[in-house]
Nucleic acid binder design. Sequence first.
DNA 1: ATGAAAGCGCTAACAG
DNA 2: CTGTTAGCGCTTTCAT
Lengths: 340, 340
Amino acid sequence: MAKSDSVTIADVAKRAGVAKSTVSRIINDVPGVKPVTRSKVLQAIEELGFRPNMLARSLKTNMKQQIALAIDDIRNPYYPELAWAVEQVAKEHGFRLVLINHYGNPSEELSIMGKVNEMHIDGIIMSTISFPAALKKYINHSTVPVSLIGNLGDDVNADMVYLSKPEGTLAMEHLIRIGCTNIAYAGGPKEVHQGTRYAAYEAALSANFLKLDPGNVYIGSDFSLQTGIQAADYISGLPELPGGVYAANDMIAIGLIQRLLEKGIRVPEDIAVVGVDDISWSTITRPRVSTVSNLTAETGRIAAELLIQRIKEGQTTPLRKVQLEPRLIVRESTVKVMES
Amino acid sequence: MAKSDSVTIADVAKRAGVAKSTVSRIINDVPGVKPVTRSKVLQAIEELGFRPNMLARSLKTNMKQQIALAIDDIRNPYYPELAWAVEQVAKEHGFRLVLINHYGNPSEELSIMGKVNEMHIDGIIMSTISFPAALKKYINHSTVPVSLIGNLGDDVNADMVYLSKPEGTLAMEHLIRIGCTNIAYAGGPKEVHQGTRYAAYEAALSANFLKLDPGNVYIGSDFSLQTGIQAADYISGLPELPGGVYAANDMIAIGLIQRLLEKGIRVPEDIAVVGVDDISWSTITRPRVSTVSNLTAETGRIAAELLIQRIKEGQTTPLRKVQLEPRLIVRESTVKVMES
DNA sequence: ATGAAAGCGCTAACAG
DNA sequence: CTGTTAGCGCTTTCAT
């Protein structure tokens, strides 16, 4: 248990011949300390190699200068950018970032919220996929501020950032606008992404008086390239080749496109393909992938800013909800362009 | 400053009619507490909704149950998997993960090591790119254990995980084995990746009595797809087309291959291309990319285990160094295969 | 088997 | 301008 070498504020005080509180004042830049005293103490700090014990400070001030980010899986390409944006903002405000993967597992998500006050954090950003009712309770009872990515309703005690409409809506509208009537869907399990990815498919069809053919829907096991490849095999075997495919994310779109091309099916001439996420890979495949940007970095930045602001001002001010507009990005996978 | 509602061990003790120490014993599973007392206390805990303040506990025990991982940039595709592996192991041992990006910035790296004891962590894993001498001093003076990714020498007080040889060596040997004599290099700045990516190029050439033609070396500004594309433009314009290209990572290799194909240069027939990293994308491009796996997840896992073991046993036991064997993975970008 | 008391290293009134 | 005095909430001897 031996507290190693650690030199404390008391050691410094003794060495400098002052009281602990004076040392405290100096390391906290409290004004009104005689310059000569200050330099005496500074010197003692230097000589002793004193470093304040933040743990003790935190115990006293109740500020840990740390926030958590709970996400599905950092290996999913959406999250590194989100995490990066969050860490940037955190760092600017002198906060560190604790990263937690919950793998979309509802019980994990609950367990995280149940442990927030054992976590040395001042607040938490949750990017939840499934959203069990129990989670809402946990959030509402949480002692630390919560910032949510996604719109989880008005009865949740948390600031939120979310898109003004599902990305998929833009993707579908685009396909319809360029003349597709027979549109296929390629995605992972329907429930994931709070179901909005798939729901947008159904909604857009019905909003445009197009009929939903269950045969046009390919549901894979995840949101990977592999799923895209399998979707291509499925879709290319359909009795009637769809004019367009709405892929639930760019990874799927890319796998899908590659496989279609291998099979001699031209994109976009035979099939137009649009994805969602605007990951960087989408700009370098051939054809480059039309997609919908969900403003990942912007989302992370705002979520972090909302949280830190909330940490600073407490639960007094009203909850904030920030809506972001998803943005359609048209590239060659949906429209033939002049120059390659 | 108001310490909100927080119910403490003292509240529980009063409610249960026992001493604080008894409550402490119970929440720490210290044996030798009469069952009836135990249940009385447990009930009080339940009724009051008591949750131990880990900060206070940490101050006393000096264990924060938290480790840090300092990396270049989480957006670089190597790191999410590393971070994931580290977090897995951390979680298994009841530790949380603090993620820090240093952007390969030497002064940032130093600043991180300078702040380790203000960070509420029990140890830190550093994946450093540049390795200034000053960093060595910081590490050797660090009060918390350090686990290093990469071999930084014998005079550094840290456990280490690293590859037994540069990945590039395997990549180059492969190209040479399949008959390339005129081999180009495509990479980012030479110093990055501790210089091993490029150094392997020079070393392999001279080990095989091949002459180094500076005109065959393309140095881009980073390790992105874009650099690969630019490298392709450069290499395809060379007076004599090289028989093979060693790309410093798979991103570059992929950008390079796509661009070569666009220009009507066949891969691997005209040029064989090998990358490094074995990122998942390399399995779905056409042709799929031959590469060298650097065992990312394994590296993360071991780094985390070394660190946590060190945290538990202290600086008494000798330093550990774990070597991993990089593995060549041959795909279609270097050899023509029978079935596509 | 349990209680009393002394801190962990720091901050924050309150005096002087 | 600086010192004294209480704690923050918990663990941990040492008694009983």
